[in-house]
Write a protein that binds this DNA or RNA. Structure first.
Lengths: 336, 336
DNA sequence: ATGAAAGCGCTAACAG
DNA sequence: CTGTTAGCGCTTTCAT
């Protein structure tokens, strides 16, 4: 292990000077800086993370808590995690990976052990038990998703309510009068994850404003569930020509099933998905969709966390506006 | 911040005694232990990670390096990462998330800064430039995947060669004479990721041993690519009745396309996939498959890493045997 | 079975 | 612009 003392000796300066060269917390003569940097490079010096954390009371680590068994939206989680890891490095921070099943104990452990400076929490539920602990311990934190009470919290999420409305507007603009929302599984609504409910709210608002008729059906990610849901919709309301799909696992089955049912997309039936661009692009036909800005959310979360560590403690809600991209799965409603 | 000194004072013992209660490195009287534990609970004490790392020269952190942009097998990566995180906690270790794009610099940083005790690397390429750095720095490490030269390394992976052979055997046993391997994208072969090549080797060996006729075609994860590949196979060798699919993104398109081509699975055509169980189960029909034991690999990797930290420095190769599960996508070949 | 005390490597006053 | 030094909180000899 090469230490700061060895670097200092080799550069012919004191250890504190080396430290200051690294932290740029006071001005250093050009000459000294060069000598120190040369010594660092020559020795392959890396500051000892623990020693630094102990002395500075900063670990330079962000803890990221991810859902353990996310049957759904795995790619989104992955993309967020990668974005967090990448953006964190821009701030010379590392990322500690925690699973949500560590629960409140995990939050306390992180808050109490100084292993991380701030936390980023994913898969936030409306009544999330980690939130009170965050408040109580005062841990700098950013939530990806919205709990019911956001007072004093920093949250980042897609504006799902606007998303629901935007999808309706798009279909209404194309002349569709009867539309359906194929939602997340019952479990998601039951777990009180906010985004599904917010999408529904926006969807219903849009439907009311545009004077459409609509149905909403939860749907598991399986082929069977999609088949059942679609069959029921086509039976109960065969005039339905527009679909909004939120459960990305249901997209592929739905497209197959529509084909089997003799519906041609987009000539007979339009489909708008709420999913990552990647999923929309690898479907056939490529889907008109509102993308889930996973990378953007991850980046924002990191920046918000860093802002808090800089001293900004004010709470903030960042709701990213939905961006609908028209592709090949939506078109004018068929003439009656 | 509650410190060990406060716990000691409250329990009426010395700090070192508290430390020993925690580390169980020397025997403590039942009475003392209870008092200390009570104090810890009452104060909500958590040892300061940095201080501990500094004093003990152990960070209790495992670094996990994951591919940044994994167009393919995202669920597998996710499952491995979650398994690593979960298993690590069993050893009271935390997991640091690094992206592969940090490259050799990242490895050096981890090795030099004491931020982690060991590394687990995913997405290992045949000629991976991180491997020499691992050897040079002597960092305790486990590779998930196999590089070309495994000398002195600890590796964990599915036995893809046996996997290829097992798929062939299954189809041969069912009477299929002409089979096809729909592989990963060209990019994967080009990047010299070992598993694709090893699968092909096993496949070809099986084909030779069982006296079958076979074709192998790389395939991107898109619908278009799958369509092109399938069309070509059906044209060049229309007697093909058995398919082995390795690229999980190609599975859904392939099934749709077979249906469109008038092939009924499994009556006319059998499909065997190499994919996570989750993917096999959510397809329709449910797929006969060799599962990618992602969780098992993650767990094993952690155990191997811990074993190294315990002093076992001997290199080891762990090749998990393939497990083929027969589901609804394979059946006896149609009579000629 | 327990305590006292010497660091671990670094940062941040304080001093010049 | 640079050096000296006192800790940060913990582990681990050494001592009893």
């Amino acid at each position: 292990m090469v230490t700061i003392a060895e670097v200092a000796r080799r550069a012919g300066v004191s250890p504190s000077t080396v430290s200051y060269v690294l932290s740029r917390k006071r001005s250093i003569s050009e000459d000294t800086r060069r000598k120190v940097e040369a010594a660092i490079a020559a020795l392959g010096y890396h500051p000892h993370a623990g020693a630094r954390a102990l002395a500075s009371n900063r670990s330079n680590v962000l803890a990221l808590m991810v859902p353990l068994r996310s049957d759904m939206y795995v790619p989104v989680i992955m993309e967020i995690a990668m974005a967090v890891a990448t953006e964190a490095r821009e701030f010379e921070q590392d990322v500690l990976l925690l699973t949500k099943d560590e629960g409140t104990g995990g939050v306390r452990r992180i808050a109490g052990s100084g292993v991380a400076d701030a936390m980023i929490l994913m898969d936030v539920e409306l009544d999330d038990d980690r939130v009170p602990v965050l408040r109580e311990t005062g841990t700098p934190s950013v939530l990806i998703g919205l709990p019911a009470d956001t007072a004093g919290l920093t949250c980042v999420d897609l504006d799902f309510e606007a998303t629901g409305a935007v999808c309706v507007d798009h279909l209404a603009d194309l002349g569709h009068r009867d539309i359906a929302l194929i939602g997340e599984s019952e479990a998601v609504y039951r777990r009180h994850t906010g985004f599904a409910a917010r999408t529904l709210t926006g969807f219903q608002r849009g439907v009311a404003e545009r004077g459409l008729r609509a149905v909403h059906r939860p749907c598991e990610g399986t082929y069977e569930s999609a088949a059942g849901v679609l069959a029921r919709i086509l039976e109960e309301r065969p005039t339905t020509t527009g679909f909004v799909v939120q459960n990305e696992a249901a997209i592929a089955p739905l497209l197959s099933l529509l084909r089997l049912a003799g519906r041609v997309v987009p000539e007979d039936t339009s489909v708008v998905a709420i999913c990552p661009d990647q999923v929309a692009l690898q479907s056939s036909p490529r889907l008109t969709s509102v993308s889930i800005p996973a990378e953007e959310m991850g980046r924002r979360a990191v920046r918000q966390a860093m802002a808090q560590l800089e001293g900004n403690r004010r709470s903030s809600l960042t709701l990213l506006p939905p961006r609908l991209t028209v592709r090949e799965s939506s078109a004018a409603a068929p003439a009656v």
